[in-house]
Design a protein around this nucleic acid. Structure first.
Lengths: 195, 195
DNA sequence: GGGCACAACTTGTCAATGGCAAGATATGAT
DNA sequence: ATCATATCTTGCCATTGACAAGTTGTGCCC
């Protein structure tokens, strides 16, 4: 913490935007997207109570910036996972847990301005990668491609959401991405006995 | 609206608890669980700004009451749906959409006191019914029973969450429960050509 | 029917918050 | 050197959640 505190007393912070953004993500990760205040973030960063408003406009603007950055990191993480459904799904769950604050804001569109250009662009990028990942496995049970893609997205998103809420039964592997794999496999056609 | 306004001017409202609860659900359905205030609900009910506190303690107490009632209605709805996975899943999604306010609060445990006795009891009841519903379909792909149950819960919950967030592609049936059925079927073993 | 304990609600107050306006200070371009 | 502009501060206001203390209605017991 306090990585972005001002080292010396100067009128200009130098990196206020990033400092407030990081403080927000940290605060959200600690106790949800509603328990902190803009003024508290300003205090953490060592600036006056109105300084954040200059960079983000208002609280919604800050959450919009969090969502935009979250979608960018999210799309990057999914891209790095490759094409296979299980790998993309595991990366999806891992992102949700490792970057809980981003994830929680991203999928709560009432918190931010979803029509923000950067948010729209990055979320569209993530969408495209998810579509590709879903296409990587054969449509089960004779369902059409689109239905199968929705099923894939649903099971991955549902697992991540339930994990974050603590709704899953105890005894699962401590690594959520590994815990997810056998669950996601349920959506795939029966495997050959060779593997 | 205003179904619980006081008809006559009297010191006792007569049904304040229910009136505030309904006003809260209405407000949450309109614009999320964070955009309203206790004082606004009090105004809607035509009582003083401190009256709700008498029944719910504080804002968290009110949200706890919403969650408790939500889980009760939820468990009832799932019970009425029967034993079949597709029926229970469709009822799950229907509840999420028809009772959006309850659903959004229920699955955001940071908003309320999850250790509240009534919440715990009703959510346990819902859990049991979900387990039964998941057991109603054969475990696919050789997965064990528990993994299959988590997969079932994940795909249903994920579909509901994505529908509520507006993340699903356009063109689906307008009835979310019917839209969910083919998606949920992806989890089942291939059907016989007879059906 | 009289009195009394308690439930239901009101009024008043306080610190904290988000947002705005106006002012101060630093930065960089020319 | 000057000046436009970005960055940050100070001051202010309405609103909020929470609490304390007072007021009014209700039901119960005798």
């Amino acid at each position: 913490m306090a990585r972005y505190d001002r080292r010396v007393t100067s009128y200009h912070h130098g990196n206020l935007r990033r400092a407030v953004l990081d403080a927000a993500v940290e605060a959200i990760a600690e106790s949800g997207p509603a328990t902190w205040s803009l003024r508290e973030l300003a205090r953490r960063a060592g600036v006056s109570h109105a300084a954040p408003a200059h960079h983000f406009g208002d609280k919604t603007g800050l959450l919009t910036a969090v969502a935009a950055e979250g979608y960018r990191l999210f799309a990057d993480a999914l891209t790095a996972a490759g094409d296979d459904f299980l790998d993309v799904g595991a990366a999806y769950v891992r992102f949700a847990v490792d970057h809980r604050a981003y994830f929680e804001v991203m999928f709560r569109p009432d918190l931010y301005r979803a029509d923000d250009p950067e948010v729209a662009a990055e979320s569209a990028r993530a969408d495209a990668i998810l579509q590709r990942g879903a296409r990587g496995h054969a449509a089960p049970s004779g369902a059409d491609q689109r239905t199968a893609a929705i099923a894939a997205w649903s099971i991955v998103h549902g697992f991540a959401a339930l994990w974050l809420n603590g709704n899953l039964p105890p005894g699962l592997p401590s690594d959520p991405a590994e815990a997810a794999r056998p669950v996601l496999r349920c959506l795939l056609p029966p495997r050959l006995p060779s593997t």
